[in-house]
């Protein structure tokens, strides 16, 4: 192996851990989370929700030039989120998570009786 080949092999074998940059937006109906995940294929995104936390893991595979990257980040989700309605999509290396708010419970009037 030549010296350049060795350098290249070392670079591509290395794994970088990165916290992706995110934006969080709130509208009346939903929260929107956007994360920059350049180089990540949609099949390499792993999202899970447990105990009020969203865990985002994504893997960017190494190419002949760029090294492998493991993107990882956790978020606490607001209580009012309807966890069954969360929708995720990838477009141009940006992950979009839509977190719709659950229908707010109607304020309940409590009658007080006077004895």
């Amino acid at each position: 192996m030549s010296q350049t080949q060795v350098a290249k092999a070392e670079k591509t074998e290395k794994l970088y851990h990165v916290q992706p940059a995110v934006d969080v937006l709130e509208s009346e109906e939903a929260f929107l989370l956007l994360a920059d995940l350049p180089g990540v294929d949609v099949s390499k995104v792993d999202l899970s929700i447990e105990k009020g936390q969203i865990q985002l893991k994504a893997r960017r595979e190494a190419t002949e030039i760029t090294p492998a990257v493991q993107y990882e980040r956790r978020f606490l989700v607001p209580r009012e989120i309807d966890a069954n309605q969360i929708h995720a999509s990838m477009n141009r290396g940006v992950l979009t998570l839509q977190l719709p708010k659950a229908a707010a419970p109607k304020p309940r009037r409590i009658e007080i009786s006077i004895d």
Binding site: A21, V22, D23, V24, L25, E26, S27, D36
Partner: peptide, 16 residues
């Protein structure tokens, strides 16, 4: 461009 749409409130803004 990173521009929130109308009616969206920015809570976290890290993407440049």
């Amino acid at each position: 461009k990173i521009e929130p749409q109308e009616g969206q409130r920015v809570l976290v803004s890290e993407r440049r």
